[in-house]
Design a protein around this nucleic acid. Structure first.
Lengths: 198, 198
DNA sequence: GGATAAGTTTAACCCAGGTTAAAATCGAAA
DNA sequence: TTTCGATTTTAACCTGGGTTAAACTTATCC
């Protein structure tokens, strides 16, 4: 715990500002572990049940699916600094994962095992609330994506991404962004070109 | 409560088969109310915080958004018999709703107020679990939609809809289906025509 | 710095869905 | 059964993304 102090402090602060009482947070102290990922390492893999909830100290992760016929990858979600990372669908339902979740750059996370999380749910209402908020966050994240596909053009979505996650562009190649937006590389190039001319 | 008996029994059975203990379910009895909707009536409206969780005894509801510029409507989700209905995003976060939720045919639901639900969460782990499952269901519903937009063609989505919700086609005009699939009416016609020729 | 690999853009062609308006069909009601 | 309105289909034209392969640009590494 000594060497994780800075990271735990960060998590404490962030959860604190979301309403978590210090005493409740202390209950979780024995369970958070620090882990480093090299670029390309997996947080969770296809067919594996996602057992951990992670908190990204620093880094970027992506959830992607592989088309078994063509081998193509498509990105579902990105996670970056100070976000919770999990292969949501698998984590929340504790079922085999349809996706890969991978570090896109060298990354550091704090993580907790779902068994410990379930213990905490039983020990304190604060943590129950936390659990519900995690599910809600996942819901919200995905809802915003669906709304994007339904109500916006790829160009809109790209513009939004640049506004909301400008930092991701530093560490993630454009073809991954294109995939996330639901389009192909050349289309993103066209959009970018179109946008230069206003 | 006497006249709602049949409907309550249905709900009891369904929750029971999802693991809800009878004693826990009894706690909720005073709180469920029956409500009838005429076609076109709203379950929840734009800017209104959705305060109720409904259980569809019979009927069809849609969540849709109106484009404030053009006045166009686009459908997000459908709910039908034996599903829980709520304007999820608003209900889960208790914030003003971006959508309209409307009965598409004459419908009957049992509903419960979120305050009572929160009471139940405090009274019993069974209900807490129920609450988490509601959030998870919402998540799953929307996740499947996002996956559809990302990984499937409109034609695939239409085919899937016919397999999974064949009943909806009886009560919902095709242009609402098209909207749900993210396409325009004429496109759905083309898809249908294409499909006849296998 | 030059070679090599990775990433991005461009070009050319194709096709599906968007758009608009008209035509056809269906349904309910008179 | 006729009529009116709602729904669905068709037609014609347009646009933007898909696809493929080549060209170009940037990193990276020896």
């Amino acid at each position: 715990m000594s060497e994780n102090k800075t990271e735990i402090d960060l998590l404490r602060t962030i959860l604190g500002s979301a309403g978590m009482k210090p005493e409740a947070f202390e209950l979780s102290l024995p369970h958070w572990k620090l882990k480093q990922y090299k670029k390309g390492e997996f947080y969770n893999e296809y067919k594996n049940v996602c057992k951990h909830l992670g908190f990204v100290i620093t880094g970027v992760f992506r959830i992607y699916r592989v088309n078994s016929d063509t081998g193509e990858e498509k990105n579902m979600l990105f996670f970056t600094d100070h976000q919770f990372v999990a292969s949501y669908k698998s984590f929340l339902s504790q079922t085999a994962c349809d996706y890969y979740t991978e570090a896109m750059v060298d990354s550091v996370i704090l993580y907790i095992h779902i068994d410990h999380l379930n213990e905490l749910y039983g020990q304190s209402h604060q943590w129950e609330r936390f659990g519900r908020i995690v599910a809600e966050t996942a819901f919200h994240e995905v809802m915003v994506n669906t709304e994007g596909f339904l109500f916006k053009t790829p160009e809109d979505r790209y513009r939004e991404m640049m506004e909301k996650h400008p930092n991701i562009f530093n560490s993630v190649p454009l073809y991954h962004i294109a995939s996330y937006l639901g389009i192909q590389g050349p289309s993103l190039s066209r959009i970018r070109k179109r946008m230069v001319g206003r």
